[in-house]
Design a protein around this nucleic acid. Sequence first.
DNA 1: CGAATTATCTGAGATTAGTCAGACAAGATG
DNA 2: CATCTTGTCTGACTAATCTCAGATAATTCG
Lengths: 291, 291
Amino acid sequence: MTDAISRIRRFNRAVSTEIGALDHSYLGRGRPLGAARVLCTIGESGAVVSELRDLLGLDSGLMSRLLRGLEDEGLITTTPCDQDGRRRVARPTEAGCAEILAYDALSNERAGRILDLSGAQSEAMLEAMDRITTILGQHRIEISEHHPETPDARHCLQRYYDTLARRFETGFDVAQSRDPDITDLTPPRGSFLVATLEGAPLGCVGVKGDGSELAEIKRLWVAPSARGIGLAGKLMQAAEHRASDLGITTLRLDTNKALTEAIALYRSTGWHEIDAFNTERYAHHWFEKHL
Amino acid sequence: MTDAISRIRRFNRAVSTEIGALDHSYLGRGRPLGAARVLCTIGESGAVVSELRDLLGLDSGLMSRLLRGLEDEGLITTTPCDQDGRRRVARPTEAGCAEILAYDALSNERAGRILDLSGAQSEAMLEAMDRITTILGQHRIEISEHHPETPDARHCLQRYYDTLARRFETGFDVAQSRDPDITDLTPPRGSFLVATLEGAPLGCVGVKGDGSELAEIKRLWVAPSARGIGLAGKLMQAAEHRASDLGITTLRLDTNKALTEAIALYRSTGWHEIDAFNTERYAHHWFEKHL
DNA sequence: CGAATTATCTGAGATTAGTCAGACAAGATG
DNA sequence: CATCTTGTCTGACTAATCTCAGATAATTCG
């Protein structure tokens, strides 16, 4: 009864009774579940019908009828797609947006009830949930370039500083460190990449350039819930690739001796240790890689 | 996007796409989901119809029709209950058992696919799943008396020894310790209680008696996935209650200084520290409580 | 350009799920 | 014993979900 498969099936039972209730928040607004699900999947920003069908796994006939129903209710409008006249785009009307928000509120309320239920253990449960979310969704993690001042980027940076403060023997104070200039982290000089899963930021890395062929890797961070799935490696690979696109031929970085996993990663991916190339207060090791 | 409620909803989405597939393993054998669910809930040992209805939340009319359908297929038989002629008991036929096993195999196969998916991270994911399972199901944990040699009891004891070996500075060897006699842990002298959630053992505690009014608490253990939900306290309460039923008026216990949470629990639940009452090799503290 | 492909829509129909009211027999209660 | 309650069954009905075969229009490809 305690082998891996039993554990998964037991988990499934537990989750489908308690969390499965979240799906039922689609009910209770005088609309069948199918229609409600379509409406909420369309979302406030609208969606292409064929993608909706794939996402929900519905037959084209059924899909069509559900959309018609929502249209009759005045909740959505459908218009042909600009690029491809065969496709149709479904967009919520004002009334439709209100309905979506109402469903959202219901869903939030149910989610809140799960938190009440778990009481003092809620943080432990949320962490476990995050782990499962990222492990199951790891193949859907997207790495894309962000301006370092977008909310997601700021979030990553803040958590990065928090992590350093916790892990460095001497603590960490941003003001004491060589904080890179924003323009050095944005094209054409450099880049700032953020890994997200369904909109939630899970990690980041910066390429700090000065216009020359030499640049630095800065601010490599991975969320605790995403550790152990090789995300740091993917971020570094993406950063090196992007740097190469920007015409950079040599990358350097400095790191603290406390960040052992990072050091191991650099060593195993073609970086070699070099002499100190700066006087960064918190650095113990310096690495270089030719692209 | 990173508040508690969003985290739960994101988790819900991740789980309902990947794990929700487990429910659909009820499909694919030419039988509607409702009927399959009833059949699998009946199980190989059979079930009373009214309990099935409660469990699955079905209308009595629908239930009746589904059962008739399964009966027509030759998968189950229904007979009036011995004790109460109004109730009916549904039992699977030989063919029914085969079907149940086939559904089980399908479900296991899907669960296995989730494991493949998560690859190297599977142990981390399973641990996170266990945590969620126990937190969500904590109100359904049952504490009952077991003979110390049943598989569940043995499992708990083995894990208890493993834990001690890890946590004691000096390691732990059962042979070096005062291992209680089986008969001292079974009624009428004593008792061995196991906490289970849906059949999975999560914790244990023993009352070791010698027929007198004085007995000892032994082998208090809680599974890692069930820590932090107050299970140790519930086990101790149950043990004290059972001891009282057995005519015991004073309980004693010894413990190692490394088990700080246990010591804190004893101190906060009416136990007071006393002088050593034995020469247990691994003990540093001795407690007593009058019931 | 004509043929094949793709995305959506429509009609017709079947299956599944769920509700309600009433019938009936076994058991509980006074 | 009469009455009430409980557990199951049945018929009649509705709503929701799903499937299939073709129709239609936009796009792609040789």
